[in-house]
Design a protein around this nucleic acid. Structure first.
Length: 320
DNA sequence: AAAAGATGCAACCGCTCCCCG
DNA sequence: CCGGGGAGCGGTTGCATCTTT
């Protein structure tokens, strides 16, 4: 795709400033929005109001200065659930997903998802390439992934989300030609046929507790010799296999279903079982669980169809 | 207490879409 | 109809902060 040459072609503007915004810049930007609305971003620079690009101004407004933003609070369980369901349905359409979450921006959703993805990848014993020593690139220099002791799969970094990144594309005649590409970026390399069939190692798995603080403090609560096991039977509603714990030493039979949560979009039909064992976990969020909790989750199979979701609500206030 | 690692988030970049002349 | 430019979106990166060792 050829770059649009004339971009920023005003050219006689002061040098574009990048990096963190100052309070003064915010104030100027807010004033502009008050006077002109959240439009005409480019004019901010062309008028010499700020040495920022229109894109930068727009981003600052959308992500930080908009008055209706929920800043500084983590995603609630409900928000988390919505993100998961919508991601499964729409794919990485963060802006679209964000329209269902008042006060959240596409960047918020994107970051939330990314964080979650990284954590799951790590928890599944697929160490993400360290960012400090070099930029991450799945598989590109995959030596890290191959350091895995277990015969899992190469490049498992993206595995945890195969089910979701793929889900929405099945049966979705997407209007966006970019979706499959995006999906492939995450899932193609994550093709790991062996992982689904591999029995997990016999390592104690902590029992989840609602409200448990997140963190890898290792302060995991009680543990039990419960291992995750994909039932392979499929979710009757959305096609996603439930996560089932089994104790292979005692019995090959599934012991319990992992309580629903925001994790893999499990259907409510599977929630009650978890509640029966662990109490009501409806409010448990991904962040609330000890990472070890997920260490040996088996991955659900791909759903056959994207779950339904109601039509988008009226667009939130992008205006003042 | 210090160092190393992990995490979360703000911001930038590249690309596409869409409107307008 | 076509091309230019603005706006928007998704992916990526940099860095400050928090946590763990």
């Amino acid at each position: 795709m050829k770059p649009r040459g004339g971009r920023g072609g005003g050219s006689e503007q002061p040098a574009v400033r990048k990096g963190p915004w100052t309070a003064e810049e915010d104030e100027v930007l807010l004033r502009h929005v008050r006077e002109h609305g959240p439009r005409e971003w480019s004019s901010i620079r062309s008028k010499g109001l700020l040495p920022r690009t229109g894109k930068s101004c727009r981003l600052r407004w959308v992500n930080k200065l908009r008055p209706d933003l929920k800043t500084g609070c983590k995603f609630s369980a409900e928000e988390e659930r919505v993100v998961l369901e919508l991601q499964a349905q729409f794919g990485n359409k963060w802006a679209r997903i964000a329209t269902y979450l008042p006060g959240r921006t596409d960047n918020d959703v994107k970051n939330f998802w990314s964080t979650r993805q990284k954590r799951l990848a790590r928890l599944l014993r697929a160490p993400m390439p360290r960012r400090r020593p070099g930029k991450q690139s799945c598989g590109a220099s995959s030596s890290h992934a191959y350091e895995l002791p277990a015969p899992k799969s190469p490049c498992m970094e993206m595995i945890p989300f195969q089910e979701t990144t793929t889900t929405h594309r099945i049966g979705e005649s997407s209007s966006s030609s970019q979706e499959p590409t995006t999906a492939n970026q995450h899932t193609a390399a994550a093709h790991f046929p062996g992982a689904y069939g591999l029995p997990p190692p016999p390592i104690p798995l902590p029992i989840m507790h609602a409200g448990a603080e997140r963190g890898s403090s290792g302060a995991c609560p009680t543990t039990a010799l419960l291992l995750p096991y994909g039932s392979g039977t499929g979710n009757p509603v959305n096609g996603v296999d439930p996560l089932v714990f089994v104790d292979p030493a005692a019995s090959p039979e599934p012991l319990e279903v992992v309580p629903r949560g925001p994790f893999f979009g499990l259907d409510d039909a599977y929630v009650h079982a978890g509640r029966a064992l662990h109490g009501d976990v409806g409010g448990v969020r991904f962040d609330d669980l000890p990472p070890e909790t997920f260490d040996f989750f088996e991955l659900p199979h791909l759903p056959a169809f994207p779950p339904p979701f109601p039509p988008p609500p009226p667009s939130p206030s992008d205006q003042l």
